[in-house]
Amino acid sequence: MTPMNYDRWQRVTEWPLIIASAIFLVAYAWQVIADLSGPANVLAETLMWLTWGLFLLDYISNLILIGRERRWRWFYTHWFDLCVVVLPMLRPLRILRLVTLLSVLQRTAGTAIRGRISIYVGSASALLIFVAALAVLDTERGQPGANIETFGDALWWAFVTVTTVGYGDYTPVTELGRFIAVGLMIGGIALLGVVTATLASWIVERVAERDAEQDAATVGHIKSLETQLADMRGLLVEALGKER
């Protein structure tokens, strides 16, 4: 049997971690939206703890398999993986790895990158709003003075918060709820920045393509003029030769 290394571990655990993320998201959404209690709540909690255990195992295995020489560098450059373990709420973001499979549908390298970013941003936006709505509902529901008591209220709050509209009709009253709001606003601004950068990249590429077409046309015109001049020169030489 071939010994397990870091790269092979990444390939082997890719789909299991995606499935674990989906299970976590479904269990958490079920628990929050249905306001579970009794055996159903125990089942949802068990599923979430099991998925947390898988991500903890993945994180420890990565630290071990990366090798002693690269371990600290990997630790410093993989803060998201640490957050996945420390903050279980971020685990569903692993589902976004699925969008990399869609790159085969793109025709060129440039459009592949841009298309992947567009799909990633759209998926991340929807997932960010959904998870934030679940989190704030889970935090705010039943608290004194809270006005976010249903998933519809939480979803509306998440939409107006991530777009920085902030009507103020629904606001978190707990410290954790406000912390979630801050994270949602920062996430919305970051996603907007990605969209802006992608649009700017597209505009620059279009301008570059147009300049390239104009340059090609100019070169073609110059070559055509050179050909015509050569023909005229030939005719002139031939005419002078006949006169002599």
Rank of each mutant, 00 (worst) to 15 (best):
V195R: 09
W156C: 06
V160M: 02
E205P: 04
E226T: 05
G168T: 02
T51N: 03
V99W: 03
W157S: 02
L47M: 08
A197P: 03
L54T: 11
G67V: 05
F159S: 04
G145D: 03
A20R: 01
L17A: 06
T161A: 09
W74H: 06
A212G: 00
A135E: 10
V194Y: 09
F179E: 12
A20D: 04
L127A: 07
L191C: 10
W79P: 11
A181K: 00
P144E: 10
I19S: 03
T111R: 04
A34S: 14
D58T: 00
A197H: 13
A44N: 05
G234R: 11
H221F: 01
T77I: 13
A20K: 03
L17M: 09
M185C: 07
W74L: 11
E69I: 08
W9R: 03
K223E: 11
V131Q: 04
W49Q: 09
R8P: 00
G115F: 00
I113E: 04
V162C: 00
E238L: 09
E175F: 09
W9Y: 12
Y6M: 07
G193I: 14
G168K: 01
M89G: 08
R68N: 15
T111N: 07
L235S: 06
I95W: 00
A109L: 14
S61Q: 12
A126I: 15
W49S: 12
T196N: 04
W15Q: 15
I180F: 03
G168Y: 07
V160D: 05
I222Q: 06
R11E: 12
I148F: 01
N41V: 08
M1P: 15
W72L: 14
A20W: 05
G220S: 04
P16H: 07
L102M: 15
Y167S: 14
A200T: 08
G67R: 04
L36Q: 06
L236H: 13
W156A: 06
P39C: 00
R94G: 00
S125Q: 04
R94H: 12
L101W: 13
E14A: 10
D58G: 04
E209F: 06
R73H: 13
E238K: 02
T111S: 10
W15R: 04
I18N: 05
V195C: 15
R114A: 02
S125I: 07
I186F: 09
R94P: 01
A200H: 12
L184R: 02
W157M: 05
W72S: 09
R114V: 07
R71W: 13
V131Y: 01
Q106M: 13
G241C: 06
G188D: 13
G220K: 11
V194E: 15
V195T: 04
L199Y: 15
Q10F: 02
T100Q: 10
A109M: 01
S123E: 05
W72F: 14
V85W: 09
G53N: 07
Y120M: 14
A112F: 00
A29I: 09
E149H: 09
T163R: 12
T46L: 05
G241Q: 10
D231V: 11
F75V: 12
R68S: 14
G38K: 05
